[in-house]
Design a binder for these strands. Structure first.
Lengths: 197, 197
DNA sequence: TTGTTTCTAGAACGAAATTCTAATTAACTT
DNA sequence: AAGTTAATTAGAATTTCGTTCTAGAAACAA
């Protein structure tokens, strides 16, 4: 297992990296920037993360894990297909608003993942998606949610709010909380099934 | 005005850059790669584009301009709100399929725009959006398209298909032509107005 | 203690972006 | 046509920045 000092050093590097990245983008920040902001040496940074990409990847995986956890916490409370679908949209909005810099980093995705990181990412996402479908399965079986090609659900439900949030993050649209009901409504309309019309 | 030889040299650099970027990503390609592929010198490249970022930005703007032009050509043929909305989705699909490398580059957005490029980009987009709303205005006035907050139309219509295409481009979903009708339907449902229900 | 592993430091290195100066080419005057 | 100017190209020189390397400190186990 990992020393306590190691955990906190890693955390401080990730936090420093996030603040540098938000300031100047990934390309725009140097190892020195991160290292100075975290108050550690170059050697320490490389010892823990291997490369600048490595830092970005770790931050990305960390952010996704946190987002997924928040989403699942919300979804597990849902008692109908409709409330689950609406919850995806509203949780997306509120998480993004509460973690704007992280969300901005996730959206910017100016990262080219190493094969190893791609693996971790796929593993993370497929476990998450699996759990999400588990939650939705009973509502789908009851006909409350429509039967559609597998890969269309996520885009249909989250696509619009994601696109909107991207605009908001780059300063081109007002806060998503003001329009979240419109998007929740649209999401539900897009996937509601025969027994819910 | 620009010399003919200049225009073609720029073009050859942009084409070379696109092929290098698709091959190895933006980070992964060096100035030398581009320069060799384009058959020009370092000096020439810097003379025309100022930096590697500058090349990426120019390519991005060029791609967006081409996409916008294709979309407007399609929209100008539409004779109803419904056909216009559906056309956004299907044109998005077909353009993306026909220009996969460009589309992949546009989606990867591992580019950090310089302030100047951000300006050009905003100018381009706002002229485009302005024209799009001009096309939709008569249908909106007739109540065929619903009245919604200004910034929600584009995400509601294009968000889902964009999200789907992103998955397709990264190899996680089958070709969009197979599902474009589902997304066209959803788009129209999301924005159709009182007189169209 | 003493050996062992993990972690930290920062100088040294090398690759790649960028700058700079000189040469070349095209366009325009007169 | 010769001369003048501006645009373009070339490639060597420089700089910046990511990464590697070696030595030493700190935590831990025996």
């Amino acid at each position: 297992m990992e020393r306590a000092s190691t955990t906190s050093r890693k955390r401080s590097i990730l936090d420093a990296a996030l603040s540098c990245f938000s300031e100047n983008g990934v390309e725009g920040t140097t190892i020195q920037d991160i290292q100075r902001a975290a108050g550690c040496s170059v050697g320490s940074l490389y010892h823990h993360f291997g490369s600048k990409e490595g830092v970005a990847e770790a931050l990305w995986l960390d952010a996704i894990a946190r987002f997924n956890a928040a989403m699942l916490r919300a979804l597990e409370k849902a008692e109908s297909g409709e409330s689950a679908v609406r919850s995806v949209v509203t949780t997306y909005c509120s998480w993004t608003a509460r973690h704007a810099p992280l969300a901005r980093f996730l959206h910017s995705r100016d990262i080219e993942f190493s094969p190893a990181a791609k693996e971790s990412q796929k593993a993370l996402q497929s476990a998450y998606i699996h759990r999400v479908f588990e939650i939705f399965a009973p509502f789908a079986r009851a006909g409350e949610v429509a039967e559609l090609p597998l890969h269309t659900y996520v885009p249909l439900i989250s696509g619009p709010i994601e696109a909107y949030v991207r605009r908001w993050l780059s300063g081109d649209a007002p806060s998503p909380v003001k329009v979240q009901d419109i998007f929740a409504e649209a999401a539900w309309n897009a996937v509601k099934g025969p027994s819910a019309r």
